[in-house]
Structure formats: structure tokens, C-alpha cells
Design a protein around this nucleic acid. Structure first.
Lengths: 203, 203
DNA sequence: CCTACCGATCGGTAGG
DNA sequence: CCTACCGATCGGTAGG
């Protein structure tokens, strides 16, 4: 039941400003008047474009989740496990690096969604994690990886990726593509079987 | 200027409850009355034991930071780099796993400290990270590690560790010591030189 | 998109 | 540790 009012694209501007504020200060530390001020509006004027504060949070989190899924969908299932995991890793990081604000909100504020929406996000996140886990398991099965517990290995990999929103600086000196490759190399090597690891080290 | 009032140990109880609430709901989403209720008190009664909400946050964050530093201090500098990093990793994880609530507050709510206290925490965190970075650099120097950029490698390692507070469940099936070892093995192998990686794989 | 206004809740104090 | 109370701010609505 969104209003879809007056100025076209206004809602997008609000989402952008909200992403920046929620991402840096946090959802509950950001007031609606503060958000309005960033857009040179009165607090009450926001409600012509949005339903409420939580709907705003949902819009941002939902988009971020969709961006992750879309990026992962471009990694074909038929790729050999190691290459598949590498592609999943770099795709995941690209989403974080390119939409740092939204990623920050996604990772740190999704808990503040309503129970129902939070439940939905958990389900989507679990499904997404399964793609990583399958790549790890398939790699164990075909001998390219060697890990005690594929579930734990998956969590280690995703943890390494997800915390990057805390320190990655788009204005900093680190090239996102190089960084993504360094990530993938380190994490892949961490999972690699001992005998495989000795081979293939060209670069 | 702490009051240090009436019931002895009452302040500890407050810190414990605050750790749980801030850790699960977040600092700004937790009200002082909510905290009081968890202790079967009126909101105003808290102020006999604490100076204010932010001082409470500071107490928790400061303790968590001290716990990390103390644990790292027990890892001798003279250890060979790979073993040193391994010990730093497991020590770091033990702190997180044993004080999950405080770790959660530390990682997600330190940004809500006052400017001055936030600055101090950044300085202490940077100093702490240097220990990890030196271990990585020393490992590169002596040939046990092979990484493009030691700073980036350090961030990858610490990211993998720090995000664990989001999913680790003390009541779950994962044994913290085994988990810490799996972490260390995966991350160490990720940094290892190709020719070294082939050796030493007993377990 | 504004002015005017709402009830609820916030962290915190006074005084006992 | 309580009752009583404070000003400020919260998200949000009415009505134009």
C-alpha cells in the first residue's frame, strides 16, 4: 500500500539517505527527523513516500539480500567446486564493496525487522548459505578440499567475507577486485587438500 | 565518581544483564526500564549503581577489550610466527566463545560510545591488530607464509574470527576448542607458502 | 510537502 | 531501592 506520491524518484533518494544513515549510525540511533533533515524535508513529509521506519529498513535489507542472490545466480552450478566457490566468494564481496551502506544495514540491522520479516530473511540467508556449503561439500567429495566439517568451513568463509563491511573503505587505496582475489585465494587455500596445495600455485 | 552503593555485587548483576540485552537487542534498542525489569527493579533504581547508560556500555566494551588483550599477552613474542599466529587466533576465539554477550556488544555497539571513548577504543584495537599483523609479517619474512599484502591478510583473518559472535551458539553442538582449532588450521593454511603446505599435514 | 499536534517513551533527577 | 516527576525526543497522523 505504498503511496507512490508526488516527485518521481523521491523514494529512491530517501532509501539512499536512509542507507547511509542506518549504515553508519545504526537503525535505532537514526531518527526520522534526522533522515528528513538530510533530505531537507520536515519529518512528517517522509510519510508521503514511505509507510514507516521499519518499511524503510525492510526495503534496504530486502534489496541487499536480493543483490547477493542475483550475484550468486550468475555462478553456474556445473563449475568444478573450487572454481565455483571462488566465483561465489568474489561475487559476494563485489556486492558488499559496491553497496557498502546497504551491506552494513543488512548485516547489522536485520535483527531489528519485525518477527515475520526477520523470519523470512533467515530463510533466505540459509538458502543462500547452502550454495556455499554445497561448493565446499562437492570440493571435499572430489578431493580438492579437505576439511573436518563442511558446515564449519562454510561459516568460516562467510564470516571472513561478511565482516569486511566493517573496515572496507571505498575511498581507500584497496582495489576491490584485487582485494576480492586475495580473499578468494586465502580462503580457497585454507580449504585445499595438502597434496593439491603443493601443485597449481602459479600467479 | 561511581556511587558503589548498597548491595555488593549489584553492579556486576547489572553489567551481566546489560550485556545480555545489549548483545541480543542492541544498545539503542534496549531501554533502561527494560534492563531494570530484567533485574526486578524500577528504572530509576539503576542510577544508584551506575552513572548512566553510556557508562554501562563503556564498562562492557572496556572489559571485552581488556579480555582480548590479556589473552593475547599470554602468547609469547618469541614463538615462531606460524605458531604465534595460531595461538593468537585460538586465544581470540576463546574470548569470544566464553563471553559471547560481551563480545557481541564489543563488536556491534562500540560505535555508540562517546567520541572520546570511541577514539580510545580505536587506538587499543589498532594496537591489538598489530600483534596479528606482526605475526603475519614475520611469517612472510621467515618463509612460512606467502601473501601479497600482510595488512589485507591480517584483516581477512580477524574478520573471519570476529564475525563468529553472530552465529556461535554456546548451547549448540560445536565444541569451542575444536572449533577454534578448525579456524586456526583453515586460516593458517590459507596463508601458508605452497611448498610448506605440502609438509606437516599430520592430524 | 508544510504546520500543528499526538501519545508514548526515552534517559535521568529529586527527595526520601 | 522506591514514588513522583522532568524535559526532550520518538515515530507518526490530521488536515490542508
Amino acid at each position: 500500500m505504498t503511496r507512490e506520491a508526488l516527485r518521481p524518484g523521491r523514494r529512491e533518494e530517501i532509501l539512499k539517505a536512509a542507507g547511509e544513515l542506518f549504515g553508519s549510525r545504526g537503525y535505532h540511533a537514526t531518527g526520522m527527523r534526522e533522515l528528513a533533515q538530510a533530505l531537507e524535508l520536515r519529518g512528517s513529509s517522509l510519510y508521503a513516500h514511505i509507510e514507516g521506519k521499519e518499511e524503510l529498513l525492510w526495503a534496504i535489507v530486502d534489496r541487499a539480500a536480493a543483490a547477493f542472490t542475483t550475484a550468486a545466480n550468475e555462478v553456474p552450478d556445473y563449475l568444478p567446486p573450487a572454481e565455483r566457490l571462488e566465483r561465489l566468494i568474489t561475487a559476494h564481496l563485489r556486492v558488499i564493496f559496491r553497496q557498502l551502506d546497504h551491506a552494513a544495514v543488512f548485516f547489522q540491522d536485520w535483527v531489528h525487522l519485525s518477527t515475520e520479516r526477520r523470519r523470512e530473511m533467515v530463510a533466505r540467508r540459509d538458502e543462500y548459505q547452502q550454495r556455499f556449503r554445497r561448493a565446499v561439500e562437492d570440493g571435499v567429495a572430489d578431493g580438492s578440499f579437505q576439511v573436518e566439517d563442511p558446515g564449519v568451513a562454510t561459516l568460516i568463509v562467510l564470516s571472513a567475507l561478511n565482516f569486511s563491511y566493517q573496515w572496507y573503505d571505498a575511498a581507500g587505496p584497496l582495489d576491490p577486485e584485487r582485494l576480492a582475489r586475495a580473499y578468494a585465494r586465502t580462503l580457497l587455500d585454507g580449504l585445499r587438500s595438502r597434496h593439491h596445495a603443493a601443485a597449481g600455485g602459479k600467479e
